[in-house]
Design a protein around this nucleic acid. Structure first.
Lengths: 107, 107
DNA sequence: ATATATACCTTGACAGGCGAGGTATATATG
DNA sequence: CATATATACCTCGCCTGTCAAGGTATATAT
């Protein structure tokens, strides 16, 4: 992996919400999407992912339902809520602001 | 404060090194500089600052010396080392990369 | 049979940030 | 002269997100 956890820390929820904004998805798929999108530079670890799902659900930002797969392993799908959409916008704005601040501070 | 600790997490060392790249400085001053540079949007907490100094020193990225103040409180100055300059470059590159990745992942 | 891929999950350790508390010097205010 | 404020340093212990390690189950390929 090429970028450290500490830099990514705090973005996990935003990343997940951004994905769910496009379409409902499930853990395994979200993880693969992220790896693919970043050319394997960044991998969201499973334990990180699932603890983030729990937080997001507790905060009402996502809701979950089981897929109706008849073959293969079951899938737990996640969908973003209205609160989640609002949170996403807030997180995204914070990121834009933080980006400027950090850029400025590290020259 | 307007940006969260988790987003800033991991940048503390880079921010400090960037400051020391310009000139030697001491804790209190560095803290004030950061607040001023960010229009008080971001304040590096003292405990965060001093633990970061310890880490940086242990890693050989900075060295310290006491100021020769004859009045007022004593000041412990910090200076960046060659290793520190190299670390700064590395951190900065990681940041540029991370920025792109995050931007891409959160759309 | 065994390995690999898909798919889910929990537990406990770790590390950085930070609130709360402390020390000391100097100056300004009442 | 007492008190507040600014300067300047520091430590301890909690909190929280990340992640290694471990686990379960289904299906397919070798």
């Amino acid at each position: 992996m090429s970028i450290t956890s500490d830099i990514l820390r705090g973005h996990t929820e935003t990343i997940i919400l951004a994905h769910l904004l496009e379409q409902d998805s499930y853990g395994y798929q979200i993880n693969k999407d992220i790896m693919q999108k970043t050319d394997n530079l960044y991998e969201l670890k499973e334990s990180t992912l699932y603890t983030a799902f729990r937080r997001l659900e507790q905060n009402g930002y996502i809701r979950t339902y089981w897929g109706d797969e008849t073959v293969g392993a079951r899938r737990r799908y996640y969908a973003i809520t209205e609160e989640g959409k609002a949170a996403y916008k807030k997180y995204k704005n914070e990121w834009e602001e933080a980006k400027n601040i950090i850029d400025h501070l590290i020259k």
